[in-house]
Structures are given as C-alpha cells and as structure tokens.
Computed example of a mutant assay.
Amino acid sequence: MAIMIKTPEEIAKMRVSGRALRQVHDAIAPHVVAGVSTMDLEEIAVKKIAELDAKAAFKGYHGYPSALCTSVNEEVVHGMPNAKRVLKEGDVLSIDCGVIIDGYYADAAVTYPIGKVSDHARKLLNVTLHSLEEAIKQCQVGGRLSDISATVQRICEAEGFGVVREFVGHGIGRSMHEDPQVPNFGEAGKGPRLKAGMVLAIEPMINAGGAGVHVLKDGWTAVTNDGSYSAHFEHTVAITKDGPQVLTR
C-alpha cells in the first residue's frame, strides 16, 4: 500500500476542485424534484462543470458514460442517468459526482428525498449522513484508518441498517482512486496511522435492509439484494495537523 501524502500546496489545489464540485451539487439540488429525469440532472451537471472550466471525473472512467452517478431507491451506487428514469414522490436519489481541476480530483455524494418519503427512508438518510460526519471527526493525525470505518459501522448497524461491503471509500488526489481503501466497516484501532497530508474520500453506503448487493447486467448499477432503499453520502477530506478539513463542504 503506497499512501500518497499531499503537500499543503497540493491540498490547496484539491480545495479548488472541492469548491467547484460543491458548486455543481448546489446547481443540481433545486432540480431534484418529482417529475424530473435523472438525465435532466446530468445535463445540468455537464453545463455547470463546463462553466467552471473543470472536467467530469467519472465520464470515460473505465468506459463510464456520464458525469453523474444517479442511483434511485434500491440502487446503491453507479446508477446511470437515463431520460426514462423520472423521479417520483417517495423516491430517494443519490447523486455522486467528481471533478478534476489542474490535475487534482474531488469526489462527493448526496442522497435526496423526493418529496415526502417514508419515515424509514428519512431515518436511513439521516443516519447515513450522521455516520459520515462522525467518521470525519476520526480523521485525526495519529489515529488509525479503521477508526473511520468502525465509526460508520457502529452508528449504522445500531439502527438496524446494512453496511455495504463490496464498495468502499478511497484515497484521492491526482487519481480518483488511490490507496488506501476506506471501508465502512471494521474494528477500531487497526490499519495504517493517519498522517497529515492524507486525503480520503469517505463515503458510507448504507442499506435500509440487509447489507448484500449485486451488480446488474449493465455492468455498473449496484442494487440491494432485498430491494430495500440505499443511501450514499461522501466528502473529500484532508487530514491536517489542525484536524480534518472537508474540501467538498
């Protein structure tokens, strides 16, 4: 495992990418409503990314066709925008996006309720987001990588939710996926020591039911085995001597 340590100058460049990515998410958010297709949201994202003189990190990555991943309801991650996939009241939609500016990546995801959702769906979103925020607090110099993982698992499993094993967070920098992997499960106090200059994409992927998932025939879209809803939140986080800095806030 070769974990890349970023200089303060590199983290500053990643912060530029992170702020741009936040602007992309902010441009999309008002349009995440019933009656809109996931391709409509893709078009908004593509336009905003171009306005920011950024590059879509996902498009073309291992052949992926879009700037966004738009995963609806039981879709966990890597759902592809589709003009025929129209959002309806009670759905949940996770939007994952990445951008590149000046050779540096940022990656972030948000899950939205569409109109009025069930109490269980609302709880799933709230708990998943809470687990991310608590995991970010573990990004302290001298801590262990698995402290992040264990925090997500503890919070989400305590509420009866399933923690996805097949997909994990990751290091990020001049590549979208760098070492180390950042699982959302594990025993605290294990793994590499956290050092200033590490930058991690932390991304709880949590199911309302069981943890099991499988990938559809399209080769991308991962769905829950039991058809339960799934939530996904993600931030790009720099570890510094002054504590965690969320670059995509």
Rank of each mutant, 00 (worst) to 15 (best):
7 T>I: 10
11 I>Y: 02
15 R>A: 15
17 S>N: 11
21 L>F: 12
21 L>V: 12
22 R>F: 07
24 V>D: 08
27 A>C: 11
28 I>N: 05
31 H>T: 01
32 V>P: 07
32 V>H: 10
35 G>C: 11
45 A>I: 11
57 A>E: 08
66 S>Y: 15
66 S>K: 14
67 A>P: 06
67 A>N: 14
69 C>D: 02
71 S>A: 02
71 S>C: 03
72 V>N: 04
73 N>Q: 07
75 E>S: 03
79 G>F: 02
79 G>V: 04
81 P>A: 11
88 K>E: 13
89 E>V: 02
92 V>C: 05
94 S>W: 05
94 S>H: 04
96 D>T: 15
98 G>A: 06
100 I>A: 05
102 D>H: 03
103 G>H: 07
103 G>E: 05
105 Y>V: 13
107 D>T: 05
107 D>I: 09
108 A>Q: 10
126 N>Y: 06
132 L>H: 01
134 E>K: 15
144 R>W: 04
145 L>Y: 00
147 D>Q: 00
148 I>Y: 07
150 A>C: 07
151 T>E: 10
154 R>S: 13
154 R>Q: 13
160 G>F: 01
160 G>P: 06
163 V>Y: 12
169 G>D: 08
174 R>H: 14
180 P>Q: 02
186 G>P: 02
186 G>E: 00
189 G>A: 08
191 G>C: 01
196 A>L: 01
197 G>A: 06
201 A>V: 04
201 A>T: 12
202 I>W: 03
209 G>Y: 05
211 A>M: 12
226 D>H: 11
233 F>H: 03
233 F>A: 01
234 E>Y: 02
236 T>N: 01
240 T>G: 00
246 V>K: 08
246 V>H: 09
249 R>Q: 14
249 R>P: 03
